[in-house]
Simulated scan of single mutants.
Amino acid sequence: MPRLTLVPPTAQRPPPCPVEEFQAILAELHACRDGETDGPAVLWLINDLMRYCEDRLEECDNGSAEGAALVLRRQKFLAGLTGFAEQIRKSNGELSDEFIAFLATAPAAMDDLTTN
Rank of each mutant, 00 (worst) to 15 (best):
P2G: 05
R3M: 11
L4T: 12
L4H: 04
L6S: 11
V7P: 01
V7Q: 08
P8Q: 15
P8H: 11
P9L: 04
A11P: 04
P14M: 12
P14T: 05
P15Q: 12
P18G: 09
V19N: 03
V19T: 13
E20V: 15
E21M: 14
F22H: 05
F22Y: 07
F22I: 06
A24T: 07
A24S: 08
A24L: 09
I25L: 14
L26P: 00
L26T: 07
E28L: 05
L29G: 00
L29I: 03
G35A: 01
G35S: 00
P40G: 07
P40M: 09
A41D: 06
A41W: 01
A41E: 06
V42G: 00
V42W: 00
L43H: 02
L43T: 02
W44P: 00
L45E: 03
N47P: 00
N47A: 14
M50S: 13
M50K: 07
R51P: 00
C53Y: 07
C53D: 13
C53G: 08
R56M: 15
R56S: 15
L57T: 07
E58Q: 10
E59D: 15
C60F: 15
D61Y: 15
D61C: 09
N62C: 05
E66D: 14
G67Q: 03
A68K: 12
A69V: 11
L70E: 02
V71Q: 08
L72M: 12
L72A: 14
Q75S: 08
Q75H: 05
K76I: 08
L78E: 07
A79W: 01
T82R: 14
A85T: 13
Q87L: 10
R89I: 00
K90Q: 15
S91R: 02
G93M: 02
E94G: 00
E94I: 09
L95Y: 01
S96N: 03
S96C: 02
D97E: 11
F99W: 07
F99V: 09
A101L: 10
L103Q: 04
T105K: 13
A106R: 04
A108K: 02
M110G: 10
D112H: 13
D112E: 13
L113Q: 12
L113Y: 06
L113R: 08
T114E: 15
N116S: 13
